[in-house]
C-alpha cells in the first residue's frame, strides 16, 4: 500500500486527507486513492487524466517523469506527494 499526501495549499479548496491506497503505478494509486472524491481528483489531473501543468507528483522523493500516462512505478510503502509548482500572480 502506498500513501498519498497533499500540499497544504490544496487544503484551502478541498479536504485533503492522507490516503492509503494500493497500486503499482502512479496512475493506479491516484485513480484508486482519489476515486471517492472526483472533484479532488480534478484538482490534480485534467479530464484527459494528465497531470495538471502546474502540479507535480513526487514518489519517494523523485518527481514523476510521465505526466500523461502516470506510468511511474509505485512500491509497497511508497510515499506519494502531490504538490503545486510555484508560479506568480
Amino acid at each position: 500500500m502506498a500513501t498519498i499526501r497533499f500540499t497544504p495549499n490544496l487544503a484551502k479548496h478541498r479536504e485533503t486527507p492522507t490516503i492509503v491506497t494500493p497500486g503499482t503505478t502512479v496512475r493506479e494509486a491516484v485513480d484508486g486513492g482519489l476515486a471517492q472524491d472526483p472533484l479532488l481528483k480534478s484538482y490534480v489531473l485534467d479530464e484527459q487524466g494528465r497531470l495538471r501543468k502546474h502540479v507535480n507528483i513526487f514518489v519517494d522523493g523523485t518527481m514523476v517523469s510521465d505526466r500523461s500516462a502516470l506510468s511511474d512505478p509505485v512500491a509497497p510503502g511508497s510515499e506519494i506527494y502531490i504538490m503545486q509548482a510555484l508560479s506568480g500572480g
Binding site: 490544496l10 479548496h13 480534478s42 484538482y43 485534467d46 495538471r52 502546474h54 503545486q84 509548482a85 508560479s87
Partner: peptide
C-alpha cells in the same frame, strides 16, 4: 480559474 489546480 485556479492557477495550479484548473477551472472550478
Amino acid at each position: 480559474q485556479h492557477g495550479h489546480f484548473g477551472c472550478k
